[in-house]
Amino acid sequence: MTSTLQISRLTKRFDTVEALGDVSLALEQGKRVALLGHNGAGKSTMMKIVLGLIPFDSGSVSVCGAAPGSAEARAQVAYLPENASFHPALTGEEQIRYYLALRGQDPKLAMGLLEKVGLAHAARRRIGGYSKGMRQRVGLAQTLIGRPRLLVLDEPTSGLDPVSRRDFYDLLDGLAAAGTAILLSSHVLTEVEARTDRIVILSGGRLVAEGTLAALRGQAALPVVVLITPAAGEEAAIAQAFPEAVCTGDGRLRLSCEQARKLPLLSQIAALGAQVADLDVIPPSLEDIYSHFSRRDGQ
């Protein structure tokens, strides 16, 4: 099966800045890929190249089997720009009706789309009076027009409150299940964690890591943190058993261990029996993994 989006050895320079260097990426239908990276890592640049908005220097990009920006590609790709903006004098409904017409669809579908993103109540008001979150919803509504094969979403959840974010990812799940490939960038790592199939980390224009969260976790081999709550009166005994442990302020003991040593350590703790009141195992967070990879190549 061919990929919906195929990028290989893509390089793009802006005068002195190398925005993207030798980036390769494939996105199959129905998959959701999250693009992570600091500001200026090259996420938006990559998306604009995929959409054919800006040219690139070397490498190749194929979108639904066509050149980026070609009429064939544009007919099958939907985009949500970073900080989506629209004409302030138009109402949300008029704006969506226009976009529907441009995609050769029936403008009457506009209300239904606005309902899907929870904006039906403001559909007849001018966009000039919308909040950032409402504009973002107009942007989302227009990406739902006509079953695109590829969705490119640049920081789609910025400006949305947590509940709307969940609704938004539910919407994406539905689209992905129907076969749409989704490329999105985000700053909110926890939401990406649960709701995407793969993560790609860009740093200084280079692709520094790619894979499922579990795979990246293994690759990074970051230490696991174990928190032990001693039973009453057993603090000293436990501190003695684990001399490397650090006391946390709340009377617990904090141990850091490599992935490979995790199970032996746990059985050692279990052997202490009633001396231990409680135990927490904290895997490295996505933030830790993210910093690990995006720092490695240096910035």
Partner: peptide, 8 residues
Amino acid sequence: PLLLTYPV
């Protein structure tokens, strides 16, 4: 940018 990604 958004307008130019449409098939127009």
